[in-house]
Design a protein around this nucleic acid. Sequence first.
RNA 1: GGGGGCGUAGCUCAGUCGGUAGAGCAUCGGCCUUUUAAGCCGCCGGUCGCAGGUUCGAGUCCUGCCGCCCUCACCA
Length: 485
Amino acid sequence: MSTEEELKQERVSKAEKLRALGVDPYGGRYPDVMSTDSVRERADGLNLAAGDMAEGERARVAGRIVLQRVMGNLVFLTIRDAAGDLQFGLSKKLLKDHWPAIKLLDLGDFVGGDGCLGLTKTGELTLWADDFKMLCKALHPPPEKWHGLSDVELRYRHRYVDLFSNPEVRAVFQRRSAIIQAVRDYLISCGYIEVETPALQPIYGGAAARPFTTHHNTLDMDLFLRISPELYLKRLLVGGMERVFEVSRNFRNEGLSTKHNPEFTMVELYEAYADYNVMMERVEGMTALAIERLDGKFKRPYGEVELDYTVPWSRRKYGDLLEEFASVRMTDVDAVRKKADELGIEHGGMADAVVINEVFERTVEHHLIQPTFVYDYPAAVCPLTRRHPEDPSVALRFEAFVNGMELGNAYTELNDPRVQEENFKQQLSGQGETMAIMDEDFILSLEYGMPPAGGLGVGLDRLVMLLTDSKSIRDVILFPLQRPK
RNA sequence: GGGGGCGUAGCUCAGUCGGUAGAGCAUCGGCCUUUUAAGCCGCCGGUCGCAGGUUCGAGUCCUGCCGCCCUCACCA
């Protein structure tokens, strides 16, 4: 009895035996359960000594059986709920009527128990059940009890198994929730309101990426899954919503990596009458609140390095970094192209600004380990950004880098409709055209007048990676894309 | 797409030079009322990712394919 099918059949027949005993193997309502952590909290106040049973201190707990120790007429179960683990003590003496059903328990089943709290003689907090309910028969055995599920492919394909057998995985997603909640709370405290804009868009824009295409049957029209919410959020600035943010699932039809998933989550925000300097403070502020909610540690390990998120983060000019690490001036196009040759970059058909950016990515980015804002980008790669008032070849844009990875991207927003229209019309060779697709309604909105503003997008999956010391974006996305087997 | 690695029982993993497929956990049977990965005794469980090839003989060597991981490229 040990192939996968035989193991399952064994459990199916146990479910039938339970029914024959008059026990529903799939339970039903089980009200007034306490979480295991609140049970522990209560037990702490009882000053129990090892071996004590606290008469009258009753509790009801439900969860999944993750360990089982059977000693004839005494059974210890380790029960896991959302908060943690708790030991059940089941004795034939207290549970005579239930005993035939208890003999049919397996690892992985959900059960509920009701009884008095106590400590065993080794001091383990135990719920000594005098009432018991079968809540769900599991038909598949859980993974090995010590190592859990460690096969990476199975972990992603059967994330539900990963989650219940590897508590540290569940902890990462609890922290993810806390981080995103902190981001929301921070922005709300700054006077922002949360909005929702279309994920299905007739024209895609706001970023440079290939989209996923779909089709609406009734309207018989192609639609794109958004690569960015930018152009819609800016329309809200036109409409008089002065501080808006969206937690936006974006979709980009590009490659997969430890830092890229085809669908990913950003927080994108726009603030009227601000600029990109204010946006730097927003990045610092949301990160700081997230860290405080987690553990308050601003110096945190990430792999082999220690990252220091203490505010303020370093602010470095794009051109200065290019000189420091590539030894070329942004303005010296010949030198930049020569450097590109040295790096083996095929730059024949590329616009100057694109070549500069290629050189920057290859020479500078991997040096940006500690949290750093890089500001004032070559204007030609920033079609949605306001130009520097003293140097129109530079755009008022920054990117936030941590551990060599882009965490966020922000602009002092372009609100001149004529300049925006020109930028849309301009073809950026070697850059793809996605950022430069004409959106006439967006131009129309700018013609009605958009207040000067700062705008920012922060990759929340990446923020969660950094703050939870996760090496891959798949470790912070519950169901990362996998090819069907 | 390029390069590298991995794929053996339900799970976690061994498998030497090419010579009968192994362990632990789980399951199943037995003992057991204070265990903590409970313990002890006994049994069952395999298309070695798939398909070919070389060989007297392939988990092992070769080729192709599938899946996953890492990395580079792409994706600012």
